[in-house]
């Protein structure tokens, strides 16, 4: 914080509009940079199911793949509904 910022804070003035712009921009870019298109997510879901299906029977309708992003972290969450584990791979 510069001296002028401090003076402004003490005078309880509104923050400079450039500070507001910077904050909004930072927030919007965090979101933009981690955005994933639904098509991309569908592809990921399809391929996850494909791999897991070698070992288990998956209920495609009940399966969900989601992407969550936070300020600093991103998480891919996959909930796969298993109908049955294939007999030949159990052991």
């Amino acid at each position: 914080m510069s001296f002028m910022d401090l003076v402004k804070a003490l005078l309880n003035k509104n923050p400079d509009s450039k500070e507001v712009a910077k904050e909004r921009l930072r927030f919007v870019l965090v979101h933009d940079r981690t955005s994933i298109s639904p098509e991309f997510l569908d592809k990921v879901k399809e391929e996850i199911i494909e791999v897991i299906s070698r070992y288990m029977e998956i209920d495609k309708e009940a399966t969900e793949v989601n992407f969550h992003k936070g300020e600093k972290t991103a998480m891919l969450e996959a909930n796969l509904a298993v109908k049955e584990i294939k007999r030949e791979v159990k052991s």
Binding site: D16, S17, K18, E19, A21, K22, L25, R26, L29
Partner: peptide, 16 residues
């Protein structure tokens, strides 16, 4: 406007 704090300055934009 930059001086008044009403426009983002060069350093801000480069950093972002």
């Amino acid at each position: 406007m930059v001086k008044k704090g009403d426009m983002m300055d060069v350093e801000d934009i480069i950093e972002i």
